[in-house]
Design a protein around this nucleic acid. Structure first.
Lengths: 199, 199
DNA sequence: CTACTACTATGACAGGTGTCATAGCGGACG
DNA sequence: CGTCCGCTATGACACCTGTCATAGTAGTAG
């Protein structure tokens, strides 16, 4: 599980996200982050003068940007794009990870929310921004499939909510059942709003 | 926010659940729990010889039982029972709390999952049991409304997943928007499987 | 050469953690 | 009375936390 990447700074942000989504924010120590990123401990106070809060903020922001990019990639990979197809791809990313890597880690944004929503307002805001980024990527993709704007935003919220909840249930049960169930049950509803664009 | 209740033991379990759902498991200290429950610190090792793990387990179990009971009560309070009506009631419980008490705390089972799913197998199992209890209460209610057994279980998973995810989003955004959106969008889907029982 | 900057190294600090050992209280029971 | 038991009280333990101060090491530019 060595963390590879460009500079040490990038590795630390990435590694922090990895540890956070596995153990939660509070249980993730700064020393752990440095060690996990194979970065010197002294670099922490150099790159992150704002301390742990800054590091967590950046890790959450990174996760949000990553989720957004993944959505765009999923859309591009779909042979014939549909809302249910996109949702299935998002779900499959998690079932794949759980089945190959084990039910070790969840979503870092969820972890940040649970651990910091009440204790650190800046982390809470970073999590909100991450959700917003992710959500607007999904909504934009849905609009591209013919879903009217307002409904696209509503469906994006529904998709992300169900996905996050299903991730939680899957981790406790050590079973992808909740994820597949959610994808199957939600599929028809998601496609019901598509306005045929051509043919 | 004084914790009232029967015995000190009960108060500690309840208080632990309250603190956990606000700050997460790791950030919740044993001394905090005792103080919050107005219970003597020495009672901790007396009532919970299994240490923090036992306390967390019991808090999560309590939350699961509580959620199950709430579902039964919601069903009883509905004038004309329907799946969407039940889901709306479950969602409303959270919007009400958020609007009156602020976006201070989330779901203790979600917190336990995020913080302990990988570090403590017993807590993970307790969270799974809590979800199962809650889920079967919902499924049973749906069956009573005419939803066939297997689909009732699937819809229960979908309802709880979306609710949990929406709670996360609502806390980060400090806005009940995600919750109301999910309730509105999911409603029609939930009622589509009802088999008219009479009239 | 000096001087400066980017980065690293390390030890210490105050504070908090869960856990444990030990002792004390107060009432019930024989 | 003494004895037991449920419960409480308290201080100590080893450990870990985030943060800071301080010094040291390239490497590069003037």
């Amino acid at each position: 599980m060595a963390v590879s990447g460009r500079g040490p700074r990038e590795r630390m942000v990435f590694g922090a996200a990895q540890l956070i989504r596995r153990d939660g924010v509070t249980a993730t120590g700064m020393r752990d982050v440095a060690a996990h990123a194979r970065a010197p401990r002294g670099s922490l106070q150099h790159y992150f003068p704002g301390g742990k809060e800054q590091l967590v903020n950046e890790a959450v922001a990174w996760a949000g940007a990553y989720a957004g990019k993944r959505v765009a990639r999923f859309v591009g990979e779909l042979s014939e794009p549909s809302p249910s197809g996109l949702f299935a791809a998002m779900v499959r990313q998690w079932t794949d990870e759980f089945e190959t890597a084990g039910f070790v880690a969840g979503c870092p944004v969820a972890a940040a929310t649970v651990d910091c929503a009440d204790s650190s307002d800046s982390v809470r805001a970073a999590a909100a921004a991450a959700f917003a980024h992710w959500s607007s990527a999904v909504a934009q993709a849905l609009e591209g499939m013919g879903v009217p704007g307002p409904r696209a935003r509503a469906l994006a919220t529904l998709m992300i909510s169900s996905l996050e909840g299903a991730i939680l249930m899957a981790r406790t049960e050590r079973d992808v059942r909740a994820l597949t169930t959610v994808a199957r049950e939600l599929g028809p509803l998601l496609d019901a709003w598509v306005i045929p664009s051509s043919e």
